[in-house]
Design a binder for these strands. Structure first.
Lengths: 185, 185
DNA sequence: ACAGAACTCGAGGCAACCCTCGACTTAGCC
DNA sequence: GGCTAAGTCGAGGGTTGCCTCGAGTTCTGT
């Protein structure tokens, strides 16, 4: 049921934008679990208004992250143009976690399920598609261990989320050790 | 100031034991952050009594984990008797994380600081000492990459804590990939 | 300029968890 | 058995965060 809802009133549209901006900032700074009251305060809007526009936290996530997850497509496609399958794969991982390291909210999004934010989920799926291709290419070129899978990448992503949170200066070193372990023997 | 406090009254001693047992169970099942009320309930003791015996959560940790961390010494010493430096080191990691995987509370303890539980901290330091020796041995034998350090192991431990929480069936595979990346080139 | 729909506001109820304190109970010594 | 220090109890106050709803305000079409 595609209800073509009529446009928002001008003041409401303005508030919606203020809320989105505040949420985007606070998610990036403090993570997905920042209290909704803080978002309302930063947006200079009451908590009731916040709930009017975004009844759940997932509604914020749905409005904010799909766009940001577009970056996954960008780095995926960039990697696919790299002729060296190993370099493409390793570079993809580096870009991916650099993205995570910059945005605490994105880090959280990639590390947990958001069952009620289908657009977020599907953006992640698209990302996984790229990753799958990169993995297959590298395996077929004989440079990546043959049993590697997207599931392993999901595990890695959650581990990296933790490393990034705890020791933001160490993630690249940690990743490079892991990646070294992935070369085909 | 070593106050040789007089022995507890019999009923108090009994309650203390019940609290410890309940806390040990619940920490292992649910992690370090289990509500103190739950511990009191499982111990069949009131919340006030709980606070009488253990004024802070760290007091529980201090009473429970140092003993359990003795296992670190055991696996450390076991590894030191292994004549193959690589096998010793890799086996140590496997034993360590197997321990973590069995006890959610221990997993939490090893993944965060507990500044107010000095005995826990010092048990961890002892463990780190063993690890240091194993690392040095393996580096000198030329089987472990020369720049590896205990600090890297701390990072790994926090990453493993996360992997164990999220996907308890995957940690061994994840670890083996990482460890593969650690071999000297 | 007015009516009415759309929107905003924030006090306040709910829930989880923390911790305290004073009234009651009991173990253990005489 | 009785006294008292030691121990137990749990109601209740504090905090943080979630969410609702009815009264008040403002936008907008006519």
């Amino acid at each position: 049921m595609v209800t073509a809802s009529r446009p928002l009133r001008a003041d409401a549209a303005r508030n919606r934008e203020k809320l989105l901006a505040a949420a985007a900032e606070l998610f990036a700074e403090r993570g997905l679990d920042v209290p909704l009251e803080h978002i309302a305060r930063r947006a200079e809007v009451s908590i009731g208004t916040l709930y009017k526009h975004f009844p759940t936290r997932e509604d914020f996530a749905s409005a904010i992250f799909p766009e940001r997850l577009g970056a996954l497509d960008v780095i995926g496609e960039k990697a696919l143009t790299d002729p060296d399958p190993w370099h493409a794969f390793a570079g993809y991982l580096d870009d991916l976690y650099a993205l995570q390291a910059e945005d605490r909210g994105l880090n959280d999004v990639l590390a947990r399920d958001l069952p009620n934010a289908p657009e977020v989920v599907s953006a992640c799926h698209r990302g996984a598609g790229h990753a799958e291709t990169l993995i297959t290419r590298a395996v077929e070129a004989g440079v990546l261990r043959a049993d590697y899978s997207v599931a392993d990448l999901a595990t890695l992503t959650r581990a990296m989320a933790q490393v990034i949170r705890d020791s933001p200066g160490e993630w690249r070193r940690f990743l490079s050790i892991y990646v070294e372990g992935l070369r085909a023997t």
